[in-house]
């Protein structure tokens, strides 16, 4: 469970940090898409994207390995795709001694390409939240035409997550404090423990619901009537357009070359 409650944002005086949040979001998404569209086995294409990612990390003054170090998050899910090396037929490269499963070159290609795509994508995502404060990302979503009510809900979720995580932590601590082990007594049944967990969830739910009613009252007290106020306006500067176009051209160009060659 990632309960890393520290914000992922790392303020730095870099060109990348100064970009308009919409550019950051669009470029991150574009990057991930480009990785997904790079064909299987196009190793130079993947290498180019990796270099771009490292370059972006450097340009953001986060250091070369910032995203790399954090990208291990993607690792476990990779196992889901592992069977690929066995099931995609083709030229056999290796056969496991006991079970006779065959590993093929095509299988390996596919598996490795998948890993690369995922790895590159996650670095883009990590960089995005490192160079943009989350409220800015939420704003960018709204500016990019995500429905305002949904954007507002996400904003609230972010705002209150820390409050509720605190309450949860306090509850868990209280449970631990009362989870003594008496000598010679058996641990309580799973069902009972599940019941306790469920009761904690239920009471947290109630508290959250009541809090939301108080927040609603506070919003009403400041004039809220159900419509979200219009978003702050931000102008795209020339630099924003330049970086956006240049990056998109790079990605599209590289992709075209990878697909055609």
């Amino acid at each position: 469970m990632h309960f890393d409650l520290t914000d992922q944002y790392r303020p730095r005086p870099s060109v990348v940090h100064h970009l308009d949040p919409r550019v950051k979001v669009v470029l991150a998404l574009g990057f991930i898409l480009a990785a997904g569209l790079t064909p299987i086995g196009a190793w130079s294409g993947f290498a180019a994207l990796l270099i771009l990612a490292l370059a972006a990390s450097l340009a953001s003054r986060l250091g070369l390995t910032f995203a790399l170090r954090r990208s291990y998050i993607a690792l476990p899910f990779v196992l889901v795709a592992l069977p690929l090396v066995f099931t995609i037929p083709g030229e056999i490269v290796y056969q496991t001694p006991l079970t006779g499963w065959t590993i093929t070159a095509q299988g390996l290609d596919r598996f490795l390409s998948l890993i690369l795509r995922s790895w590159i994508a996650i670095q883009a995502a990590i960089l995005l939240v490192a160079v943009a404060p989350f409220p800015d990302v939420v704003w960018a979503l709204g500016a990019l035409r995500v429905p305002r009510l949904l954007v507002a809900t996400i904003g609230f979720m972010y705002r209150y997550f820390f409050v509720l995580a605190d309450e949860t932590a306090r509850m868990l601590r209280a449970r631990t404090a009362r989870s003594a082990e008496a000598q010679g007594r058996r641990k309580p049944s799973l069902l009972w423990q599940g019941g306790v967990a469920g009761a904690m969830v239920g009471s947290l739910f109630l508290r959250a619901l009541e809090r939301s009613e108080r927040v609603h009252a506070a919003m009403l007290a400041r004039g809220y009537n159900g419509q979200m106020p219009s978003l702050a306006h931000r102008e795209m500067r020339r630099m924003d357009w330049l970086v956006l176009l240049a990056a998109l051209l790079l990605l599209v160009g590289r992709l075209a070359w990878a697909r055609l060659s």
């Binding site: 209150y160 409050v163 509720l164 995580a165 949860t168 932590a169 927040v215």
Partner: peptide
């Protein structure tokens, strides 16, 4: 908005229980 947002925060936090 406040109800959905806070309940979403609750769900996320509750996933730790």
């Amino acid at each position: 908005v406040p109800m959905m947002g806070v309940l979403a925060a609750f769900l996320f936090a509750a996933q730790a229980i």
